[in-house]
Structure formats: structure tokens, C-alpha cells
Simulated scan of single mutants.
Amino acid sequence: MGHCYSLDLRVRVADFVEAGHSCRAAAGHFDVSESFAIKLVRRTRDTGSPAPARQGRPPGGGKLVPYESFLIQTVEAEPAITMPELAARLLEEHGVVAAPAMLSRYLCRRGFSYKKSPDGGRVRTRRRAG
């Protein structure tokens, strides 16, 4: 993901164009691309602010969110389940294809972690709240 120009530069470019110069002249004066100056002026005109828009995907989405209770119940009922087994069960019962790594990251964000059992295997357990 790219980075944004500073708000200071954005304000100076917008003010330069507002003072009567063209977008292309502003681009040459401030050493930015012409498309940046044109889009900045359009954004300032439409929103009233030259501030950049939020970057990235909006939070809270994802295809596993509707199946959170199923995943948590399955892991709590069978703590030693592997991620490929969990992915197969999710596909079998709900028809959702999910990579094991994605399931692991999802469960880690929900407070689960790997704990080693005395027999040398790994068990997924709920992390303590605190």
C-alpha cells in the first residue's frame, strides 16, 4: 500500500490552485505528479478538505465472521484438532473453503493459542483473560 503526501503539502498545492494557478502549474511548482494535483483539487472541491482518505480494508469483515461460533465450539469441544481438520469440517458442514493458516490467524485473534501438551503434541487452548 502506498503512502500519502503530507497534509501540509496537500494544503499548499490546493491553496496554490485556489490562488488562480492551474493544476499542472501547481504540480510543476511543488514537484508532484499532475494527476495528484488534479485529484487533490477535485477531492478538495467535493469534500471540502484536502486530507487523504482512509487507506486499507474496513475493519470487521471477513468470510469467517459468520462461522465464529461454529469454529469456537468445535475447537473447545476438541482442543487437539488440527487446522487442516478444522478446515475440512468447515467445508463439510458449511461449504466454506478456508486455508488452515487463515483459520489459525482467526482463532489467535479470538484468544486461542498453541500450548504444548506433556506428550509432545500441541493443543489449542483458550488464553486467559486478564
Rank of each mutant, 00 (worst) to 15 (best):
M1D: 11
M1K: 07
M1T: 13
H3Y: 09
C4R: 12
S6K: 02
L9G: 02
V11N: 04
V11Q: 13
A14M: 02
D15R: 12
F16I: 00
R24N: 09
A26P: 01
A27H: 02
F30A: 00
V32N: 00
V32L: 01
S35G: 03
F36M: 04
A37M: 02
I38C: 10
R42V: 05
R43W: 10
R43F: 04
R45H: 11
G48L: 11
A51I: 04
G56P: 03
R57M: 10
G61L: 13
G61I: 08
V65Q: 14
V65N: 07
V65R: 12
Y67P: 03
P84R: 02
P84S: 03
L90K: 02
L90M: 03
E92L: 08
E93M: 04
V96F: 06
V96M: 05
A99Y: 04
P100Y: 05
A101S: 13
M102Y: 09
M102P: 00
L103Y: 06
R105L: 07
Y106G: 08
R109L: 15
R110E: 06
F112V: 04
S113R: 12
S113E: 14
Y114Q: 11
K116C: 05
K116A: 12
D119Q: 05
R122Y: 14
R124P: 01
R127H: 07
A129T: 11
G130N: 03
